[in-house]
C-alpha cells in the first residue's frame, strides 16, 4: 500500500478499503460463453450434491429467492437441448420454463445490488 493511501486511511480512521461503487445492472451483464459452457458440465453438480444437507439448513436462514445450483442447471437444460443431457443424470430443483443462464446472471446482479455478493 502506498504511504499516501495509508496516511489517508489513518486520517479517515479506516482500517480497510473496499470498492462499493461497481454494481452491475442486468442490462450491463454479458453472457460469458465460458460460464454457459461450465453450466453444461454435470461434474459441477458434485458439490451441489455434497451441499444438499447443509444447503437445506442454510436455506432456512436465507432469503427465499436464493436457489441451489441444481435448479439453475435444470432451468438451463430446459431451455436448451436438455433432452440428451437429462438422460442418465439425476437432477434436483424445480424446472421453470422461460428461465436460462441469463436468469442466473440476473439473479447474480440482484444479489450484487443488495450487496450480498
Amino acid at each position: 500500500m502506498r504511504i499516501d493511501a495509508r496516511n489517508l486511511l489513518n486520517r479517515l480512521g479506516k482500517n480497510e478499503f473496499s470498492y462499493k461503487e461497481f454494481e452491475d445492472r442486468f442490462t450491463d451483464l454479458e453472457l460469458w460463453p465460458i460460464l454457459e459452457a461450465l453450466l453444461r458440465d454435470p461434474r459441477l453438480q458434485t458439490l451441489d450434491q455434497v451441499n444438499a444437507p447443509a444447503a437445506q439448513a442454510v436455506q432456512d436462514t436465507r432469503a427465499s429467492d436464493e436457489q441451489p445450483l441444481g435448479a439453475l442447471f435444470s432451468r438451463y437444460e430446459h431451455e436448451t437441448n436438455g433432452a440428451a443431457l437429462r438422460q442418465g443424470t439425476p437432477r434436483h430443483g424445480d424446472r421453470q420454463p422461460g428461465q436460462d443462464v441469463r436468469a442466473m446472471l440476473r439473479h447474480l446482479s440482484e444479489l450484487g445490488a443488495r450487496g450480498e455478493i
Binding site: 451441489d48 444447503a55 455478493i117
Partner: peptide, 19 residues
C-alpha cells in the same frame, strides 16, 4: 472488484459453492 469479469467470476463461484 473493479473488474467486471472478476466480479462475475466471483459471483459464479459464490453461486456454485454456496455455503
Amino acid at each position: 472488484e473493479t473488474r467486471r469479469l472478476s466480479r462475475h467470476g466471483a459471483a459464479f463461484i459464490r453461486e456454485l459453492t454456496g455455503p
